[in-house]
Each structure stands twice: as C-alpha cells, then as structure tokens.
Simulated scan of single mutants.
Amino acid sequence: MKRSLLALALLAAPMLACGSSTPEVQNPDETATETTTTTNAAPTAAPAAPTATPEATKEPSPEELKKQKAAQELAADRAKWEAEAKAEDTRFTPEIKAEAKKLAEKKHASLDAALKEILAGKHRVPKNVERDKHRHPQETLKFFGLTPKMTVLEYGPGEGWWTELLAPTLAAQGKLLVTTTDPKGPPEARSTFYAQRLSRFLERSPELYGKVEKIVIDPKNPKFGLENKVDLVIVMRSMHGLHRDKLLPGFLSEVFTALKPGGVLGVEQHRAKPDADPDKSAPQGYLPEAFVIKQAEAAGFKLEGKSEVNANPKDTKDHPEGVWTLPPTLELGEKDKDKYMAIGESDRMTLKFVKPKK
C-alpha cells in the first residue's frame, strides 16, 4: 500500500510543478520540448502598454492654433479662388478677347470717353460690375485727375477690380504699373496666394494686361525702385493695413519719391469716426480722415482736395468683424445679412494729394 502511494506521488509531481491551470492544446512534439525546458523558469511578463510621449499629449499653444486656423482659411480661400478662376477662364471666350483687344488698342480722347466703353466691356468680372454703384469708379478716377496718357502706379491691386479699368484706359498711350508680392514665395503665406491670384488674372487676357508692369515688393518693407517716374499713385482701401503694420510713414515716403513733381497721390480709405484711435481702428479696417491727412502731409504732400463721392452715412463703423462685416465680404455670413446689405459698403474718404513742384 505504501509502495502504491509513493508511486502515485511520483507520477503527480511533474503536473504540480507546471501549475494548476489547464495547458493549451499544442503539437505533441512542442509540448514535450516545453515540458523539459520551462518547467522551472519564471513566467514571461506581458509586453508593456505603450506610453504616450509628452509631444503626443501636449495641447497646441495659442500660436499653433492660430497657425492651424490660418492654414485652414487659406486652403478654403484657395479652393474658392480656383473654382472662380476656372469659371472665369471659361467665360473669357474668343469674342470677349477680341473686344478686349479693341479696347486696349484704342487711343481714347479722354477719361470719360475711355470709361464709357470700358465700364460696359464684357471683359469685366460680373461681380465687379455689380459693385459700380458702391465704388463710383468714373467719379473717383476723374477726381484724381486720371488721363489716358499718364503713368499710373496701382498699389495693392487685390483681385484686379481697378486694374480691369485702368489697364485698357492706359494701354495705348500711357502705362500701368501694379505692385505684387512674390508668386514663388512660401506656399503657406497669404502674400504668395495673393500674388498667384493676380498673376492668373493678368495672364487670362494678354490683350488687355500684356503691357501691365508688375513691381514685386516685400510686403514688410515695400520699395518701388522708382524716382520721379509716376504721374499718379492710387491707394485704395489699404492704408489701415499699412498703419497696422507700422509701415505707413515709410510707404508714403516711397510714394513721394516715385511721383514726378506735381504728381498725385489718390487715396480711398474706410473712414473711422473723427475721435477714433488709429491704433485701435486700423485692425477694424478704418482710419480717421484727419490722421490720414496728417500722415501724408508729414511725408511732404499737400492736400489738394476732398470728395464725398464714396461717403456712406449709414455706416456706423462699430461692426463685430470691422469693415469686413459689411458687403462685399459679409464676414458673418447669413447672420444679420439683410441688415448689413441695407447699410451697403463702408463710408470712405476720397482724398487727393499733390507732390509740390520745386
């Protein structure tokens, strides 16, 4: 009996040494190998779960969030522009190009004669035509003293609203220069996008814009490389940005240098309330009129005249998104759209400065 109990104990020992859990079903040869090699080994630890690195869990900084938002907005603007540009390319038929060629080749007797045809031209972007009632192009350019034989510098042409009027007016007898940033700049920069947009606009119609001369500038330090070469410089709704970026005095000095003696600086600018602080109103798109005059006079200009052709007393100048709350931008979208459409485009000063003759 004792011998039987001893035999049973000897048979059970290997099983107890492997633990009490049920073994997995394996190939018999593999089981035999594991029994002889791992019976007395410590159990293998399970792989540790990956731990998140500080970079993975770190919240983006306000500056990073700002950059992300800017990149998203730029991508959206690019997509919108591409769609509009393709539609405009399609609209620009051979018939429209032929008409544009005639406009550009014609030696217009006067500004009125030129603009009578050009304002009605089919080359104009349809949405631009819709803004004529707000922009008053004929009255504004006449106030500045534009003639078809002038050399004109357009600062910050944007999407070409004024360019499509100036280029055919000046093509046959005058000259148009426009500033632009570098179209080959960093792709994430808005200045690059704006330059590419302008280039495509000009390239769409060589008949109209083939003689337009582009002056590439650094937006942080605009230099024209001109001296006593220009009859008229027009600056449309841009001075708030120049002041905001602390560039206005240097810019006005550059304009003064570029103009011939007796040359004209024509300014159209969103007008702030008279007592507004320029440092606070500029980011909203507005500047006080007296401030603009003072800055121009400090650069050596003489105020020749004021016009209220672009005035709008309905503009209260206190909108949630600044001047961009109003049309055509309508930054708030459909929110209170009827209200802002009823106001119309901004209240704007229209000023004529002259570089004194020596």
Rank of each mutant, 00 (worst) to 15 (best):
A113H: 08
V267R: 07
R131Y: 05
L351E: 01
Q196A: 02
T325S: 14
P50W: 08
G210K: 08
G241T: 01
T22Q: 13
A71H: 13
F92V: 09
S253M: 03
W81H: 13
M15H: 10
V178Q: 08
S199Y: 00
E331S: 11
K149N: 15
D182K: 05
D218Y: 12
A98M: 00
H108T: 03
N40D: 09
G145M: 10
I96R: 02
L16S: 10
K122W: 00
Q196R: 13
E117W: 02
E139Q: 14
K260G: 06
A13N: 02
P148Y: 04
K133W: 10
T39A: 15
E117T: 09
E34F: 11
I118D: 01
V129T: 13
T35I: 13
G19C: 09
A52T: 11
P222A: 06
V255D: 00
H136L: 00
A87D: 12
T35Q: 12
K106M: 05
P187K: 12
A258P: 04
S238D: 04
T151R: 14
A76D: 11
S199M: 08
K317R: 11
P50I: 14
E331Q: 14
D132W: 14
L65K: 15
G156P: 01
Q269P: 02
G225Y: 11
V255R: 01
P183W: 07
A49W: 01
S20L: 15
G322V: 10
L8K: 10
H270D: 11
K246Y: 02
R78W: 07
E164T: 13
I96S: 01
E308D: 13
E130W: 05
V235S: 12
S21F: 00
L103Y: 05
R131V: 03
P183I: 05
T147F: 02
M236G: 03
D132R: 12
G333I: 11
Q196M: 04
H108L: 07
K102D: 14
T57V: 15
P60F: 08
A100H: 06
N310I: 04
G160L: 08
D218Q: 04
A282T: 02
L332I: 08
P327H: 00
K122F: 00
T169K: 03
A195T: 06
